[in-house]
């Protein structure tokens, strides 16, 4: 998929960080907030404007878990698999979600770009374990059945 990039928006982001190459992580975060992933065409543009090689930007983007080079779903569901959630059975929830959406470890996003399912390291909401988040909203004390209900609700919203 070829994403149409509005470079004026990228310029605005760069402006916000005064074109400082040390702010590349924040710049990528803001870019991702815009497109829900990091479109390939952004890289050479950032490289030119910030004076760092595209390979370097790519190296930073692939180091950090939160960056995605693939388009993500409208709803990003993150299942916490920190220790507390793990011992309170978070994996069956993950399996249920993947199964109902036809996803797997290697395929995180549905073809209609509606849902992305991934695990996340501890969200620090251990008291509510097991938890998951949908676009940063926390859902506490989940079970596989509750997850199914949640999916149904999200689908209905559309």
């Amino acid at each position: 998929m070829q994403e149409i990039i509005d470079f004026k928006e990228i310029d605005a982001i760069l402006e916000r960080y005064r074109y400082e190459s040390s702010s590349i992580i924040a710049i990528l975060q803001d870019t991702q907030a815009k497109y829900r992933y990091l479109p390939k065409d952004v890289f050479p543009y950032l490289s030119e404007k910030l004076g760092i090689s595209t390979a370097k930007i790519y190296s930073v983007a692939t180091f950090y878990e939160n960056f995605s080079l693939e388009p993500k779903g409208k709803y990003i569901i993150k299942i916490c698999d920190g220790t507390a959630c793990h011992v309170r059975k978070s994996i069956p929830i993950l399996e249920r979600l993947r199964k109902s959406l036809g996803l797997s470890e290697s395929k995180e996003t549905t073809d209609d770009l509606m849902f992305t399912v991934q695990t996340v390291s501890c969200l620090g909401a251990c008291g509510l374990a097991p938890v998951l988040t949908v676009n940063e909203k926390v859902y506490a004390a989940m079970t596989p059945d509750k997850a199914t209900e949640l999916l149904a609700k999200l689908k209905e919203e559309n």
């Binding site: 890289f43 090689s53 595209t54 390979a55 370097k56 930007i57 790519y58 190296s59 692939t62 180091f63």
Partner: peptide, 14 residues
């Protein structure tokens, strides 16, 4: 440059 991390790390072009 390096790309990815951990056991997936490799030397790669962009």
């Amino acid at each position: 440059d390096f790309a990815f991390r951990g056991s997936k790390m490799c030397v790669s072009t962009a």
